[in-house]
Amino acid sequence: MIGIRARPDRPAAAAQGDAEPIRRSLAEPDAFTALHDRHAPAIHRYVARRLGPDAADDLMAETFLIAFRKRRRYDLARADARPWLYGIATRLVARHRKAETARYLLLERLGGETAAEPVDSEARVSAQALRGPLARALADLPEIYREPLLLVAWADLTYEEVAAALDVPVGTVRSRLSRGRARLRTALGGADPTEEDIDG
């Protein structure tokens, strides 16, 4: 059972009331900054985990710029904008998917092109955390499985929220998560994935 769990770190204000600043921003564009202030750190963390802190600065900003441009399309019936924002961030990360987290970071840093922020220790940590068999398994995982897995594991979204973020039915999310987990299990030397393919 992995779909439901407590998320004490979710800001109370975020779960409600995102629709309000978005609605107001239609007439007063500046009101959209409230959404940035509320969610930018979480979006940054998610992108930083996938691509590293330097790319995260840019993609965090870009996520909110794109959201701002598309704000007219936001479904104001949804109080929580996180799935929408994570969906945008995920699509931005996908553009960088060929640059897998660790190597992207390390190589780019070694190239000196992102070396202007004091992020040395973080870079080392993410590189280390993603080393070993799990990193390789994750790197080998097709994007359609990796995205829902990481949205659940690293962005703390529920299945329904992942479905909204990726704009696919929740049943599709379930089956992709299940297959993604099975692939990881196999890659990590676990049981035959076909044995446990039905999972929630």
Binding site: A48, E122, V125, L130, A135, L138, L149, A153, L184
Partner: peptide
């Protein structure tokens, strides 16, 4: 595997 991924999540600094 999801718990495994959660545990392996890179501990990144806030922006």
């Amino acid at each position: 595997e999801i718990a495994l991924l959660r545990e392996a999540a890179p501990d990144v600094a806030p922006p």
